[in-house]
């Protein structure tokens, strides 16, 4: 049900962009993109600041290895960091290499039906392939927004299109993006546990990204679009001089693609996709485990009702004296 709703929603959105853009090209080509991007930026900042506003009262690092103690004992610097530099590296490993996912295992019944833990790297692999392909695809799109195209973008394009397959030349990440998404979707659909925990909130962005990926793939490799006109539109948009005249020469498929991107931008700040920012703020990961050496301050630390020694001795003093325990009030 959730799957179908997600699929239908994305299909309808795509068709809206595809079908209605002809009637209102300015709306779909200029107004909505501006609105979406503005909403994306504002929403993103709002969400991050909302997190930043909340204090981190305690240093609750998840320690995944030996702590810093005697210098003659082995320790895990990047799984149990003791200072800012080590913490930074831990975060880099997490953000760039998905280190925690790489540890993943799969619990399965062993020969005697007791649990055993199989190595499971496909989630990591799928995630890495998808995320890095996505990054490269995004960076490649800079060629459409900036004139002249920056050298680093050209270099990425060259590397990505190293293998001479087809015309226009086939990008490895075009495949990686879609393959990664298909894997993640298939996992959600066919792994009973993951299927059980999945919400529409999970299916919708997957379908949305797939819609964007497939329509983009289609635009590049199958039904070609007028790249020059699209670049003229895109550069016009980013310099706030959008040209309305150019809109009519762009294929409706492009508007389908663009509209899905706009939906993604608008949806982004209000969804789980904000994990891109959240991962940096995770208190169990972004703090050093040095609480015993450096005191962490809780801004809202408040006094609580205690049971003082005086009260204690009042109750038990006589008993203590009877067995010869020292007391304050003899």
């Amino acid at each position: 049900m959730k799957v179908i709703i997600g699929l239908i929603a994305v299909s309808v959105l795509f068709l809206a962009g595809y079908g209605l853009s002809g009637a209102a090209p300015y709306l779909f080509g200029v107004i909505i993109p501006y609105a979406a991007f503005a909403l994306f930026l504002a929403g993103f900042v709002y969400r991050v600041l909302a997190w930043a506003k909340v204090p981190v009262p305690f240093r609750i690092t998840t320690t995944c290895g030996g702590h810093k103690t005697h210098d003659w004992l082995p320790r895990s610097k990047y799984d149990n960091p003791s200072n800012a530099v080590e913490t930074f590296i831990r975060m880099l490993l997490e953000v760039l290499c998905f280190r925690s996912l790489l540890k993943n295992t799969k619990t399965q019944p062993g020969d005697d039906n007791k649990p055993v833990y199989a190595t499971e790297i496909f989630l990591w692999l799928g995630a890495i392939v998808f995320h890095y392909s996505m990054l490269v695809v995004l960076l490649r799109h800079i060629r459409l927004f900036v004139q002249p195209t920056p050298a680093f973008v050209t270099m990425i394009e060259r590397a990505d299109g190293f293998f001479q397959v087809g015309v226009p030349v086939f990008y490895l990440t075009s495949f990686g993006l879609i393959a990664g998404l298909v894997y993640l979707l298939a996992r959600r659909l066919f792994n009973p546990q993951v299927r059980y925990i999945s919400l529409l909130n999970d299916y919708f962005p997957l379908f949305l990204l797939l819609g964007i990926g497939i329509s983009g793939f289609w635009l590049r490799y199958i039904s070609k679009a007028d790249v020059i006109a699209i670049k003229e539109l895109a550069t016009g948009l980013v310099t706030f001089t959008p040209s309305a005249a150019i809109l009519s020469s762009i294929s409706p498929l492009f508007f389908g693609h663009l509209f899905l991107v706009c939906v993604l931008l608008m949806y982004f700040p209000f969804s789980k996709l904000m994990h891109i920012a959240g991962v940096f703020l995770s208190p169990t990961r972004n703090m050093a485990n040095n609480n015993r050496a450096v005191r962490h301050i809780n801004p809202w630390n408040y006094p609580v009702k205690l049971h003082t020694y005086e009260e204690y001795e009042e109750e038990f003093g006589e008993l203590m004296k009877a067995v010869g325990l020292p007391v304050e009030k003899e």
Binding site: Q193, L281, P283
Partner: peptide, 14 residues
């Protein structure tokens, strides 16, 4: 912050 963040960022990767 842990509470608020953990309410927000889970992607249910499983």
């Amino acid at each position: 912050r842990s509470f608020k963040l953990f309410m927000d960022v889970c992607v249910r990767c499983g």
